[in-house]
Each structure stands twice: as structure tokens, then as C-alpha cells.
Design a protein around this nucleic acid. Structure first.
Length: 488
RNA sequence: CGGGGUGUGGCGCAGUCCGGUUAGCGCACCGCGUUUGGGACGCGGGGGCCGCAGGUUCGAAUCCUGCCACCCCGACCA
């Protein structure tokens, strides 16, 4: 086993890193906290991106692009916003280098200091709302429904591949509306788009909910979140959608004339998902043999392996199968590299998470069949040649469903209702996962629980059942349970 | 920013404590041959300013000083 990876049980973080490296998704770069996304990893991200992009466009949004650099003064216009991001901003102070007069190399030219420093965007609300001021004068200009695909920089103390890197790729939607109701509707709509994407494409069940004040986006009145559960029992915030009220409109003086010709501030939303979804994908489905990718976002859905190596007869069958699959819009690759061996190829494609493998050998062809192996369960079946493409079409859909239900089952097993702190602490320490408990709504008890257990409120679930109860710490009354977990 | 760890061919490591021939091993790579239904084997080969800069010494991967980088664990955040 040349490429063995750590097992989840023995070392979960190492398992995670091993999968990323051995499946060649990404690697650490020369720059601290920044990663190189390799072609296979990027192909998965592209599939996520394309799907999301389609969903954004279907809901009426258009893409645009705003600058990477934000004048420092912009960031400070909205008080909560600057407080949230100030501690992790990269700042551009100079615009020129020069040869070091005292020796080797180059230095920053002290003469080339910027009048106003520029912030490398940690998010783009401010630079975008500065433009919106010019774009909006009347209710006829609204709504503005814009998304941008971009990189952002947040100078994190501690980084992990995909989950938290200093620079990451994401999309950020920024919309402007005439009414509060419409803006809230937009934030909710995009929240649901994220949830649908996560569940239908990534096969990752998510909880839909809102954030408490302490977990909200800096500058938001309401943050909607989708929360997923990873295999180590920790929660991962996978996407957020914010109702921003009129905070940014006020900060950037964005007003419009309503139908009565009265000046009003514009209502805003923003929403985003990032390459963090890659981390969610890995930790939701993969096993000790490597990556598992849901068929709907797998760069290669089917790989054909000649056994033991390519020859004319196998090639012919392989190409026939490929044509059939391609006509069904199934992506397929023929691994006819004569230099590596069968066992190696099997292991390699499993490691990289290809959902379905077709093995074609002489013994199969004598029986007019091929061997088909599915990555999620590792089951193999023999399928007669004339039924291969239909079989695979069904199988891919089966795998997609199975991954979702497997993850959902895991979540059910790792979801617990508790009523006392004793239970809470024992569940957190033993199996982790989501814990439904009553909360009195105060930041103090939330903080106290965090201090004692490291668990935070992941969300206040939408459509929660109304239920009388008492807070585990304060004993004060509560009307519904909220979801706690240790989080990434 | 605190604590811990690691820097030695592309990757993973040994060697460092106790300085001493041409710095070694596994994987990967190149060549030839034999193999081939689950990560092949044999033989031959190429590749290393030992993180960087000083210092000690006849002699430094090894000892000393300084610096840098990255990883892991915490506090903070997506």
C-alpha cells in the first residue's frame, strides 16, 4: 500500500489532510495559510460553482465584478462591520519596490507610500454599496440582484486546507431592495438555494436556521445559515445569507425615491458560500479508503479500467461504452495507461472518489459482461454489455441517494435532545453531534455554555416546534429548542 | 499571539544526543527484463548548497548564536 491514509478513528485531522493531499485536491503553498488548489480539486469546485451559478441566474441574479482593493476608510463606515473584520485584514501600504541600497535583494520603496492604504477585501459590502449609491436613485432602479465570484483574504491565525485559509474563493451575492419585506424574502430565498444545493447536489443534509446575535455576520440584522454535521461529530457552517437591514445604505448614503417621491434608505442582503464547501464535501462522505464524491459533482463519474491492460478487443468495448455514457451526459474516463497495473488503478480511483468503476477483462468479455463497482459501498456486480449505460445511469442516481441517506442517518444518530447541563456535557464529550436544548435567549447563558463545553449555538432552527421548556443554566423559560454543537 | 513540533534528493523519513571516509533508507523517477482479474518483482541507474546566515574546529547534517519557514494544539474567526 504505497499511498495509505490515516484512518478516521486513529487520527481524524490527519485523515482529512491525507485525503486532500493523496487525492491531489490541494496542497500548502509557499505562503503561510494559503493553498494551491490542484486541477482535480478545482474541477470539483468548478462543478459546485457552475451549479450554484445556474441557480443564482435562475433566481434572477447577474454576475459582476468589483475591485480586490478597498479604501481603508470604506471599511470603517459601518461600525459592526469594521469591528468584525478589522483584526484580520491584509493592508496594502506601498506601490513600489526598489533595489536594496545596503545589500542584496529588493525592499519596499519608502517613497512609494500610498496616501490612503488599501484593504484587500475580506468581503465586498463596502466597495459594492459605494457603487450602489450611484446606481440607485428611484424605486425603478430596484431591486439590484448581483453576485460576484471572487477571492477574498482574511488573515486568520490558524488555517486548515479548504476549511479556513488566508485567501479563499467564494461567491458573494449583494442585493438592494425597496422594502424590508422584499429584502428578507431575498435572504430567505438564497438560504433555501444553498440548502437545496447542499442536499441535492452535495448529498449533504443541512439544518436550516438563523444565527444568534453573537454568531451573526458583522453588520447583519439576521443571518440565515445552513449547518452540516461532519463525521467527527463537529458542525460546519456551510453557507450564510444575511438580511442587512439599512445598515449599509445608511453608511454609504444610498437612498431612493419611492412612488410617493419620498427619500428612503435601501434595504440590503448579502449571501455567500466558499471553497469551504470542499471541506464539507470531504468530511461528509469520505471513508478510510479515500474520497467519495457524489455523482452530481464528480469531475469523473465513471472510470473504465481494462483488465489486465488495454488490447484491441477491450478498447473497442470501452469506446462503445463511453459513447453510450456520453450520450447520456455521463462523464467517463478510460484509464488505458499501459504503465500502471490494475490493482494500482483500482486503489487510485477509489482514493480519488470516482463514483463508479467499470472493469473490462477477457473473462468478462467471454461472458459478454463487465464488472461494475460502486465507490460508496464498494459492491461489485456483473452487468451484461447491452445494459451497461442504463445500469450506470440508475446506479449514479442510486449512489447520489445513498450518500444523502447515509449522511442523514449519521446525523440522526448524532442528534440528541437534552434538558440538563449534565446530559449536555456528557453527550458533547462522548458522541458529539447536534444537541437540541432549551435556551433562554440571552447571550450570557450562551457564553457560559461555550466556556464550559466549547459548544456554540449553531442555529435557531427554522420551523422549530413550539415547546415550553427551561434554560439549562438560568432555569428561565424557553419556547423552543436551539441547536448546539462544537463547530469548525 | 501563547504552547509544542519539524526543516536532510520530488514525497516520507533515519542519521544529530556522543563531530571524522564517497550522507543513508523506503516510495517516486529513468533503462532493460520478467510479470499482469486489487496498490508487482529483479538487475542496473540518475538526482542532495543537509532551511538560511554567522561562529567554534584540522574537520560540522551533527556543537554554539541569530534568523526564517511550515505543521499541530489552544485563544479569535467562515
Amino acid at each position: 500500500m504505497a499511498k495509505s491514509i490515516a484512518s478516521r478513528a486513529e487520527n481524524y485531522s490527519q485523515w482529512y489532510v491525507d485525503i486532500i493531499k493523496k487525492a491531489r485536491l490541494a496542497e500548502h503553498s509557499a505562503v503561510r495559510g494559503s493553498m494551491v488548489i490542484r486541477p482535480y480539486g478545482f474541477a470539483i469546485w468548478e462543478n459546485m460553482r457552475d451549479q450554484l451559478d445556474r441557480m443564482f441566474k435562475e433566481t434572477g441574479h447577474m454576475n459582476a465584478y468589483f475591485p480586490l482593493f478597498i479604501p481603508k476608510s470604506f471599511l470603517s463606515r459601518e461600525a459592526d462591520h469594521v469591528e468584525g473584520f478589522a483584526k484580520e485584514c491584509a493592508v496594502v501600504t506601498h506601490y513600489r519596490l526598489m533595489n536594496n541600497p545596503d545589500g542584496d535583494g529588493i525592499i519596499v520603496d519608502p517613497e512609494a507610500k500610498l496616501e490612503e492604504e488599501l484593504i484587500v477585501r475580506p468581503t465586498s459590502e463596502t466597495i459594492i454599496w459605494n457603487s450602489y449609491r450611484d446606481w440607485i436613485t428611484s424605486y425603478r432602479d430596484l431591486p439590484i440582484l448581483i453576485n460576484q465570484w471572487a477571492n477574498v483574504v482574511r488573515w486568520e491565525m490558524r488555517t486548515r486546507l479548504f476549511l479556513r485559509t488566508a485567501e479563499f474563493l467564494w461567491q458573494e451575492g449583494h442585493t438592494a431592495h425597496a422594502t424590508k419585506q422584499e429584502a428578507i424574502g431575498e435572504a430567505e430565498k438564497m438560504h433555501e438555494v444553498y440548502a437545496t444545493f447542499a442536499e441535492e447536489y452535495m448529498a449533504m443534509p443541512v439544518l436550516r436556521g438563523t444565527k444568534t446575535d453573537s454568531e451573526k455576520f458583522a453588520g447583519a440584522l439576521e443571518t440565515y445559515t445552513i449547518e452540516a454535521l461532519m463525521q467527527d461529530g463537529k458542525a460546519l457552517q456551510a453557507g450564510t445569507s444575511h438580511f442587512l437591514g439599512q445598515n449599509f445604505a445608511k453608511a454609504f448614503d444610498v437612498k431612493f425615491a419611492n412612488e410617493e417621491n419620498e427619500q428612503e434608505y435601501v434595504w440590503a442582503t448579502s449571501w455567500g458560500v466558499s471553497t469551504r464547501l470542499m471541506g464539507a464535501l470531504i468530511m461528509t462522505h469520505s471513508d478510510d479508503d479515500g474520497l467519495i464524491i457524489p455523482p452530481k459533482i464528480a469531475p469523473i463519474q465513471v472510470v473504465i479500467v481494462p483488465i489486465p491492460k488495454p488490447n484491441d478487443q477491450v478498447d473497442e468495448v470501452a469506446h462503445q461504452i463511453m459513447d453510450d455514457l456520453k450520450s447520456k451526459n455521463i462523464t467517463v474516463e478510460y484509464d488505458n495507461d499501459p504503465k500502471s497495473r490494475v490493482g494500482f488503478k483500482f486503489a487510485e480511483h477509489e482514493l480519488r472518489g470516482v463514483p463508479v468503476r467499470i472493469g473490462i477483462g477477457k473473462r468478462d468479455l467471454e461472458k459478454n459482461q463487465v464488472e461494475i463497482a460502486r465507490r460508496d459501498t464498494k459492491e461489485k456486480s456483473f452487468v451484461s454489455l447491452n445494459g451497461v449505460s442504463d445500469y450506470i445511469e440508475n446506479l449514479l442516481s442510486d449512489i447520489q441517494d445513498n450518500l444523502f441517506s447515509r449522511a442523514l442517518e449519521f446525523r440522526k444518530e448524532h442528534t440528541t435532545e437534552v434538558d440538563t447541563m449534565e446530559e449536555f456535557e456528557s453527550v458533547i464529550e462522548s458522541k458529539g453531534g447536534f444537541i437540541y436544548a432549551h435556551w433562554d435567549g440571552s447571550p450570557e447563558t450562551e457564553e457560559e455554555i461555550k466556556k464550559r463545553t466549547k459548544a456554540t449555538i449553531r442555529c435557531i432552527p427554522l420551523n422549530a416546534v413550539e415547546e415550553e421548556g427551561t434554560d439549562m443554566i438560568s432555569g428561565k423559560p424557553s419556547k423552543r429548542r436551539v441547536v448546539f454543537a462544537k463547530a469548525y
